[in-house]
Design a protein around this nucleic acid. Structure first.
Length: 645
RNA sequence: GCUCGCAUAGCUCAGGCGGUAGAGCACUUCAUUGGUAAUGAAGAGGUCUCCGGUUCGACUCCGGAUGUGAGCACCA
């Protein structure tokens, strides 16, 4: 006789085993209708799940994050059913929930077209109208394999065979469609209120590029039409912020066929680039980094010695000249070790922090390139710390403090920390890995922030921490990293003399905060929607005259502001003021300084902020103070500007 | 690299049973000197990405290359 405890603490007694749906019914008809699943003692179950013992039960509806997941998961089944009705030859494989939606991979003789997508969506609507009951059942492995074999679903057979253990498997049937699935699922196909198929693309079976390519159909599903609309608007917003689009519109950079994946930086974009680099250089100097500069072209033998050639030969650009093979450096660390190796090093020299803004090239696969986010030529805020094992933890801690400061200056306060530990294939003793991983864990714990463990994802030469930030659209972007390396220094002959006069190999920490400047600028453009905060804006202010009468005053004003170190231009064209305001607003200039006869007479400027706010007339000195204060704020807490077309 | 799209003026994009193309903005010139998101008029501007094929004729159809987009795979 189960006693059910509801989330509000109230208890209900039933005189026989009771299903989640019946519990919902007992509370109210509205809730019974809204019920999508149940949570019994913390575990998600179907509404048909029968409870025999005392339990804590919550009814899951679409107002619950878990309910939305159930909808999306079930929507993947709905789509698979629609696909199989339209294309009986299509085989089903897997269909998981992803952020904001779901996908389902099908094996089919041809690619789906956008027209197919429309037809599938229409068929899905039909199945929703049919309001089929979704039934859970349990089959033994043998029966399940026999059933799917009979249906010609060879991929499903393979999936079942790969599931370890001997326990029975659960299946979900809705009308003519049945799928292997852990569940839970919505009780009926009438529960879907808002979904849309968004795209189709190829995807390898089991994520392995040696396998067949399947057809992956992406979709999104929401609790209501209004939520779906909000989501689609969010996609549109993201499209407007696309750094490739804004980069062209604001004339920051361009790409062209002759240099695929290698940006041509325009004056404005390069201004941002240099400002960022100056900013990092100052911080690094203040944090005892020693900046160096090493060759871009290095004899291939160095890459053979470092071990890169054997693993990354296909990803390195090489140059033959004078019967010698050179590689264009894909990274700076082997060169930094060459600098370290000059002169005998003592333990007193450690930790030695070396930094370089070195131009690197990598032959990235053509399909992986994406605007500034993934390029073939880039510069990192790269640094290598040579230290002893005992110094690892404090070096990592100091690095992290610097990293959080930097991110804060850009308004990124939500940082995701991930520790990747020893992979299967690795070098170094277990004790070394133990202490290295522990040092990283201690440093992470010392931050007091939440961090995730990613087992087995470390590099073969050492564990690493990766730092991802969340932009204003909620997208997660990996930028910073610190990697321990027990391998490369020894391989390239780095050593120091320890206290006891013995020769030892230093540990090397590879580290970056921004990652590559290219990618980071791409991220900033999208984060700020192109409206860079004053400290980074390529043009901080534009002076606009009303008529030719004020031209001379404007030119002098511009000169004075430039002398103060501000980036200011003057637009003295014979155009109406409204026209100029519009043009420079679209160029997202932080401050527009309007000068008419009134201002000339009073020796002021009329200041208009980006976004339209009028600050009124100001003297030259007042404006300088205002702009200086704005610059000093960096991008801390910067709100995303509205996007104009 | 793989699957499927896309490639037309500086930019954003139309277009055509296969008969060598159009708009808006930008640009140039002229008029206009105007107070906070588009002053008016005129003009100039294109090997329709490249290389083959089919055809009397290809920007349009077919094949390939390159670039690019969405995914997948990769990311020292």
């Amino acid at each position: 006789m189960p006693q059910i405890t509801l989330p509000d603490g109230s208890k209900r007694d039933f005189d026989r085993p009771v299903s989640v749906a019946q519990i919902a019914e007992s509370i109210g008809a509205g809730l019974a209708n809204a019920a999508l699943a149940g949570r019994v003692d913390g575990a998600l179950v179907d509404t048909s799940h029968v409870i025999e013992k005392n339990a804590e039960v919550a009814i899951v509806t679409d107002r619950d994050a878990a309910g939305l997941e159930v909808i999306r998961h079930s929507c993947a089944h709905l789509m698979a059913q629609a696909v199989q009705r339209l294309f009986p030859k299509a085989q089903v494989t897997i269909g998981p929930v992803i952020a904001d939606g779901f996908f389902y991979d099908f094996a089919f003789e041809r690619a789906f077209t956008p027209e197919d997508l429309q037809a599938i969506e229409k068929k899905m609507e039909e199945i929703v109208k049919e309001d089929l009951v979704v039934e859970r059942s349990v089959l033994s492995r043998e029966d399940a394999i026999a059933m799917f074999q009979g249906m010609g679903e060879t991929y499903k057979v393979e999936i079942i065979k790969s599931i370890p253990g001997e326990e029975a498997l659960s299946f979900y049937r809705q009308g003519d469609f049945i799928d292997l699935c852990r569940g839970p699922h919505v009780p009926g196909t009438g529960k879907f209120k808002a979904f849309k198929l968004t795209s189709v693309a190829g995807a390898y079976w089991r994520g392995n590029s040696d396998n067949a390519m399947l057809q992956r159909v992406y979709g999104t599903a929401w609790a209501s039409k209004a939520d779906l609309k909000l989501y689609l608007e969010r996609l549109e917003e993201a499209e407007k912020r696309d750094h490739r689009k804004l980069g062209k519109h604001l004339s920051l950079f361009h790409f062209q066929e002759e240099a695929p994946g290698m940006p041509f930086w325009h004056p404005k974009g390069w201004t941002i680039y240099q400002l960022l680099q100056d900013y990092m250089r100052k911080l690094q100097n203040a944090n005892k980094y020693l900046e160096v500069h090493t060759p871009q072209l290095v004899d291939y033998s160095l890459w053979e010695r470092s071990g890169h050639a054997s693993k990354f030969a296909n990803e390195m650009f090489s140059v033959e000249s004078d019967n010698r093979m050179y590689a264009i450096k894909p990274m700076n660390c082997p060169c930094h070790i060459q600098v370290f190796n000059q002169g005998l090093k003592s333990y007193r020299d450690l930790p030695l922090r070396m930094a370089e803004f070195g131009s690197c090239h990598r032959y990235e696969p053509s399909g992986s390139m994406h605007g500034l986010m993934r390029v073939r030529s880039f510069v990192q805020d790269d640094g290598h710390i040579f230290c002893t094992e005992a110094q690892i933890q404090s070096e990592v801690a100091e690095f992290m403090a610097l990293l959080f400061d930097v991110y804060h200056d850009f308004g990124f306060d939500d940082v995701i920390l991930r520790l990747s530990t020893r992979p299967e294939k690795r070098v170094g003793s277990e004790e070394l890995w133990d202490s290295a991983e522990q040092a990283l864990k201690d440093a992470l714990n010392a931050t007091g922030k939440h961090w995730e463990l990613v087992p087995g994802e470390g590099a073969f030469y050492g564990p690493k921490i990766e730092y991802s930030l969340k932009d204003c659209m909620g997208r997660v972007l990996q930028c910073g990293t610190i990697q321990l390396d027990f391998f490369t220094p020894g391989r390239l002959g780095a050593s120091y003399i320890d206290e006891d006069s013995s020769r030892r190999e230093p540990v090397m920490l590879h580290r970056a905060i921004l990652g590559s400047f290219e990618r980071f600028i791409g991220i900033l453009i999208e984060h700020y929607a192109g409206a860079m905060p004053a400290w980074l804006a390529p043009e901080q202010a534009v002076i606009l005259n009303i008529t030719d009468n004020q031209a001379e005053y404007c030119s002098k004003l511009q000169e004075s502001l430039k002398n103060k170190g501000f980036r200011v231009s003057a637009d003295l064209r014979n155009e109406k003021i409204g026209f100029k305001i519009r043009e420079h607003t679209l160029q997202k200039i932080p401050y527009l300084l309007v000068v008419g006869d009134k201002e000339v007479e009073s020796g002021t400027v009329a200041v208009r902020k980006r976004g339209g706010e009028e600050l009124g007339a100001m003297t030259f000195d007042d404006f300088c103070t205002h702009l200086s204060q704005d610059v000093a704020r960096f991008g801390r807490g910067e709100l995303s500007a509205e996007v104009n077309d």
